[in-house]
Amino acid sequence: MKKSDLPQDKSALENFTKELCYVQNEDGTYSTELSQGWDVKKAALDNAWEDINDQLELAKEEVKNGTKSPIYYFMLKSLMDLQILSAYSGFMKFKIKRHFKPKNFAKLNDQTLNKYATIFEISVEELKEYKGE
């Protein structure tokens, strides 16, 4: 890539960093140059987030209509899946799946709730009281 071809498009890098890229000078030798982003990959990242947000909206609905517990919602909100949440909590996946059921969630003791709340970086109250809003 020629130095003059390095894109400088606005992206999520803004206000956090510019990224270092390897580019060719006019004479063909390499040097580095900072870029503030590229539309092509911004669209890829936006797309991935759109998908995450769609899933979150669905999860909210499911909590609201009583088919899923808040743990399910906050798992997705923390960008986790069963595998990752299992690694953080030490609970087996099938056990976590049980905690996704509102009926079982209502019976969880404070210690378990506290464990989840710490992982999700929220308070136990926030976890318990979440109604899908």
């Binding site: 890539m1 890829a44 797309n47 998908d51």
Partner: peptide, 19 residues
């Protein structure tokens, strides 16, 4: 779209130096 987007992010995202 998600599939191709994932390729692009592995290929071009911050950390790769491009290409």
């Amino acid at each position: 779209g998600l599939y191709l987007g994932q390729i692009i992010r592995m290929q071009e995202e911050i950390g790769t130096g491009g290409g």
